[in-house]
Design a protein around this nucleic acid. Structure first.
Lengths: 245, 245
DNA sequence: ACCTGAACACCGTTCAAGT
DNA sequence: ACCTGAACACCGTTCAAGT
């Protein structure tokens, strides 16, 4: 692909190609993703864009999953954290940050899906967590509740964004008909076998994603205060994590 | 899986191969998944197992995603719904059903990941929803709150299960080291730049998945009662759904 | 020592062609 | 009419070999 004998050396005025470095790979992924969607950014496609073979990428990133995590953290730089230090009620400012986080993820639901499996924990993620914890602290929430609530809030926002991953290349043609199908099922359910579903009917499906999201944050924040405290908090809880015992 | 009693010319004593029908395809997917994991069940692999070509499957299933949804609903038949009609406190019985749902999904986190994007809404899913709504009704929760809480509970359980999708063929080798890396990051964070993270330290990571899950259910149920009501509930809310307006 | 061509071992889905 | 072989258009990752 390089160096045709007859070609002049400045072959094309393409947008400046980043050097083959970790940063360049991440930047190119972001560009390609914005232009064509996450699902078009494959290792091979990325390599082509960088005028090399796919193997070369593995010098700088461990895997596709690791690249996704790095890209997500990059995007998280776009989350508006200014409400953390602004005036006003803490609850309101918390909501504004969480909404900003969610709207960033909404642009790339596939990335949200990755984030669910492999939490990023990069630079920007850490700043986001710090801002959220500061607000929960300001709200007077017990530290242990805040620690667990943090995960609940971020997981809820991330999962909500991930739900919108339909990998559609251009539009979302099945999303609408999916929802129509759901509405039909809910409407046509027998009141004899499913009385509670029938009674609620399409109220089960009511509300915009935004309303659902806002209510979810309300529920989590109110619930963290009113639910019994996290009851299994050993003094050194690091090693109590799950399946090994 | 039933033995064909006639068996005219038994060509090979293989485990009984289901006929090429929708049910047979789903059953074979479940078998293959249990034996080798979801990630090994590809359309090609499935076709091979059924002694045909991959194209033939598309006569019975629309796509891989649709097949996943069908298989998940099949698995949801294994959720224990008996607590719905049992004695005892509604809250406790609700928790038991939700835990059963989650543990079914925990066995196949990849399926949970699919479920997040494409809700199944098959026969068994509908029965699960009915059981949960019955208990929320028994608990005296307002219908509108119950409708929205239902989604929150199922989404939380599903997302929690999906988090454990690491597609590991045999073991989970990176999961443990991932967590170690996380612990290191949290421990090594600067108290100057990230005071709240530093103050909480590994308490951020405390608790087993089970404890987190149980607390999450507590938070959602308590929160649904204490949060302000869903405020955007038009009388006929079906058409108020989001992006079109 | 650092990088990469080529290969390995696959994918989901479609459609023209067979029976 | 119903089914499917073969093709289309790709994948992520590894490693022996080049520079």
């Amino acid at each position: 692909m390089t160096a045709h004998p007859t070609a002049p050396r400045s072959r094309r005025e393409r947008p400046a190609k980043p050097a083959l470095t970790r940063e360049g790979i991440i930047a190119t992924t972001v560009d390609l993703m914005r232009a064509e969607g996450l699902e078009r950014v494959t290792m091979r496609r990325l390599a082509k864009e960088l005028d090399t073979g796919p193997a070369s990428l593995y010098v700088y990133v461990r895997s596709m999953a690791e690249l996704h995590a790095a890209v997500l953290d990059e995007l998280l730089g776009g989350v508006d954290l200014t409400p953390a230090a602004a005036d006003g009620e803490w609850r309101d400012r918390l909501g504004r940050i969480l909404t900003s986080y969610t709207s960033v993820l909404f642009e790339y639901p596939g990335l949200a899906q990755s984030a669910l499996v492999a939490r990023p924990f990069g630079k920007h993620y850490l700043k986001l967590v710090e801002a959220l914890l500061a607000l929960l602290d300001e709200g007077g929430l017990e530290p242990d509740r805040a620690a667990w609530l943090l995960d609940l809030l971020l997981q809820f926002a991330t999962a909500t964004a991930a739900e919108h991953a339909h990998r559609a290349p251009g539009d979302a043609p099945q999303s609408e008909s999916d929802w129509q199908a759901l509405a039909t099922v809910v409407r046509d359910v027998s009141p004899r076998t499913h009385p509670h579903i029938a009674a609620l009917g399409t109220r089960l499906l009511s509300g915009s994603p935004q309303d659902r999201l806002a209510w979810g944050f309300d529920v989590l924040i109110a619930g963290a205060r009113h639910a019994p405290p996290p009851d299994v908090l050993a003094p050194s809880p690091v090693h109590t994590r799950g399946t090994e015992g």
